[in-house]
Design a protein around this nucleic acid. Sequence first.
DNA 1: CATATGACGACAA
DNA 2: ATTGTCGCCATAT
Length: 122
Amino acid sequence: MTEKLPTQKRNERIWQTIGDIPQGKVASYGQVAAIAGIPRGARQTAYALRVLPRGHALPWYRVITSSGRIAFKPGSRPFREQVKRLKMEGITVKGGRVDMRIFRWQPDLDELLWKPSATWDG
DNA sequence: CATATGACGACAA
DNA sequence: ATTGTCGCCATAT
């Protein structure tokens, strides 16, 4: 247990978890890390996102900070892109923020169990 | 090995 | 609500 996974493996889990976030919902960096089996790994989620391979089809824009804010600098190119994509899914973005009480992804136990991306190892 | 840095998070003032 | 500090995990120099 509590073994240390290779970087690539961690990223794979994080990416898979991000892919599990349903449309119209968002998850925080820390939440993604936790589900991927990396407690307190919020910054690893950020890292995994930075190193996303070119041509990926991951809903990266569904990942925001725990306080519901978009992590990019307000007004920046990626910031606007993220806002745009979120809105396209029906997510309300106001002042660069999303109401987590409404849009936070809350996977139930079943949902987590179906996916091998959850905590345990295969 | 020592720092600096980052698409973070929790908390105190 | 804002701002600053400190903790976290990993990478880059």
